[in-house]
């Protein structure tokens, strides 16, 4: 079983995120960079699948030079190898470009399963896994909170508004997982050391056969026209309950016409 997990390097969830004034792209220098939290669940799921049988897990990320750290970090959970797509021309790429690059990088490598997190905490689009599935012509098995591989068959529980759908496909397939699937492990000391020596391919756009004119900010399928900080919300009223807390909320709800 050959599994690839796509991980994105994102600004720390707790940090204040900003756009760059000059080109309206994410200001990546403004915050610590981490592995997208949800992608850790994807790595964990991949590791559990190979540990229950056999196989190898490769980490794939597209991003600036520093994203290599996130690939190593993900490998240190117990994966075997990494692929990092880095090219100055990629700056400002949108979801269409990202999915194009990931699909190109994945093509022809013979992965049985390609696993994603269900959402990046910065872009919050939840579209890249579906887009990659579409581009590769593979079954889209997304929003899984349960993943079961048996031979060349795959079954997931796809979370829905009403509960879940049990969905089946054959392998190879594209999966995305939600945070209910598992509990990601912490990297062990042994795996942290092993990750330092794990094989890592660093590829440019030319290496994966893409032209700079198909990606990046200037060629994006959508553009930011302008942005502004939202005016800070006026500070509300906070009182300490002295037996009158409910009465005070009631008064507030009345003045706001909720009751």
């Amino acid at each position: 079983m050959k599994i690839c997990v796509c991980v994105k390097q994102v600004p720390d969830s707790w940090a204040e995120k900003k756009l760059t004034a000059t080109d309206s792209t994410l200001d990546r220098a403004a915050a610590d960079r981490v592995v997208n939290e949800l992608d850790e669940y994807a790595v964990e799921e991949a590791l559990r699948i190979v540990e229950a049988g056999e196989g190898e897990v490769t980490i794939l990320s597209m991003g600036p030079d520093e994203a290599a750290d996130s690939v190593r970090k993900a490998i240190s959970m117990g994966a075997h190898a990494g692929i990092h797509i880095s090219d100055p021309a990629l700056h400002g790429s949108d979801a269409l470009a990202t999915s194009l690059v990931l699909a190109k990088a994945l093509e022809g490598r013979g992965f049985d399963l390609i696993i994603f997190g269900s959402e990046s905490t910065d872009a919050r689009m939840s579209v890249v896994p579906a887009m990659v599935a579409a581009r590769l012509g593979l079954p889209q098995m997304t929003f899984a909170n349960k993943v079961e591989v048996s031979g060349s068959n795959l079954t997931i529980h796809r979370v829905t508004d009403y509960g879940y759908d049990e969905v089946q496909s054959s392998l190879p397939a594209v999966v995305s997982v939600v945070e209910k699937t598992n509990e990601p492990r912490y990297p062990s000391f042994k795996n942290i050391m092993a990750a330092k020596k794990a094989p890592m391919e660093t590829l440019s756009l030319a290496d994966i056969g893409l032209d700079a004119a198909s990606v990046g900010l200037a060629n994006a399928w959508s553009e930011v026209k302008d942005f502004a900080e939202r005016p800070a919300k006026a500070k509300g009223t906070v009182i300490t309950d002295e037996g009158n807390g409910a009465e005070k909320i009631e008064e507030f709800l009345v003045t706001q016409k909720f009751i």
Binding site: S24, A220, W221, S222, K225, D226, F227
Partner: peptide, 12 residues
């Protein structure tokens, strides 16, 4: 960003 920034964008 959790509502902190308002962005106007257009499909090009």
């Amino acid at each position: 960003f959790g509502g902190a920034t308002i962005v106007h964008s257009k499909v090009s």
